[in-house]
Design a protein around this nucleic acid. Sequence first.
RNA 1: GGUCUCGUGGCCGAGAGGUUAGGCAAGGCUCUGCAAAAGCUUGUACAGCGGUUCGAAUCCGCUCGAGACCUCCA
Length: 492
Amino acid sequence: MSTLHLFDSLTGELKPFEPLHAPKVGMYVCGPTVYSDVHLGNTRTFLSFDLLFRYLMHLGYQVRYVRNITDAGHLESDADSGEDKIAKKARLEQLEPMEIVQRYTVGFRSVMQAYNALPPSIEPTATGHIVEQIELIKKLLAEGFAYEANGSVYFSIETYLKTYPYGELSGRSIDDLEAGTRELDGQDDKRHPLDFALWKKAAPEHLMRWPSPWGAGFPGWHLECSAMSTKYLGEEFDIHGGGMDLKFPHHECEIAQNKGATGQGGARYWLHANMLTLNGKRMAKSTGNTLDPRDLLTGNSPHLTKAYSPGAVRFFIHQAHYRSVLDFSDSALQAAEKGYYRLLTSLEVLRARAAQGPARGTWSVADWNAQCSEAMNQDLNSPVLIAQLFEAAKAVTLDQKDPQVLGTEGAAELLHSMETWLFSVLGLSPESHSGNAKYQQALDAAMSVVLDVRRKARETKDWTTSDALREALSRGGIVVQDGPEGSSYRVE
RNA sequence: GGUCUCGUGGCCGAGAGGUUAGGCAAGGCUCUGCAAAAGCUUGUACAGCGGUUCGAAUCCGCUCGAGACCUCCA
């Protein structure tokens, strides 16, 4: 029996997972900035952490999962003239900033729900924690890690370096970082180019603003996560997750803020989910190389040939390891969908299995389950878990011919286990291929009439009529299949 | 320019110093009026060039290629 190991970005190692206060686990994940629709890349990250959340609960942990909503807006640039992203969008659309926030927050939640991601335990907003952020700045000022300049407050990297290292998470040296520093306008207030803002003075036209001891302004980019993770999970907690692109500077700064204020770096395990690429390039709102997760469900995108179910998309995502770059393509998604439906069919076969054969079969469900756990324990290796599910499907097929394979109790256990892995852990939903029950009933009724006519034609070997009917139905998206026990149909 | 990651069979994607990943597609077979579906089965891959080793796709070096970060971004 193995135990859960997670890859910690800070040490670059696979570490055995030992919670600080088992069976409680604290987990913080950087959520979306709600100034536009989430794209499929964002979705992948959140589904990766949903998988972790689910697996931790599967292991019996009581997880407090905190995922923030960034609604205070980030600067567009580091310059003093920088404009709040949310405020900018608001001006463009002639809306209140909080209207933008509300619209995209609702959109984000509906996408997460559509893809069967469990809601986090707490979903705190940055604007709801201005007080905590101001308190954190006060603490950093008191500790000497921050300084005020012209109504703004900055974190001092030089001071910080006297006590702590900086750049550990991203593996960067100060020299490297300085080499990469660019000249930006309006940075006069900063003492050092690597310093970052904790509080920014708001320009008169800036819409999102709050009073503070340093005047009207708004919080810096990295502050909210430090403030909210500390508030809800403590100065030291178990897991912090986010997208790979947040590693630097966001998480690096977060660690510095935490250590500066509390002496603790925050999380003990830093997890980073890798990017989803489209056409070999990173999906990003700013470049337009994006795919809306909702479009996958309608098929309404130039990148798609058809609509997919949320389960098929999730299956596709979990067929790659969360730390690998995954390249999206319609054909890859189709391949995943076919495999996924095969597994669901196998599950239906297992559900319908007659109680026959011995109690235990020759195929060990316990061994199989152990292998599934082993896969997930290796840093959430969902691709291997899925490969195991196909092994189970193979056993189900063998069992159909020979009930000695699974046996009565074995089959029941396998069914329960497969459902657990597929639905509870991988977060796939037990979907029906059909839609609305009322229309399904009506269609069944109509089809039984048509198939009956066709059956009569076939009995008299009137292949012309029978094939014409099948052809016509096929054009309408109904596939008819003839089997030994008659004909069946499915909608494609 | 700096830091780093990756390059696996037709495609997607695990693994990893010697042992079958898995899925999809493709070929063959079974079934079948035909078709479909389903089942069985086949393929022997790890960018290139060197090196270490009894043995490397897996370790080291170089080359080529791709990507990420260095600037808000999951």
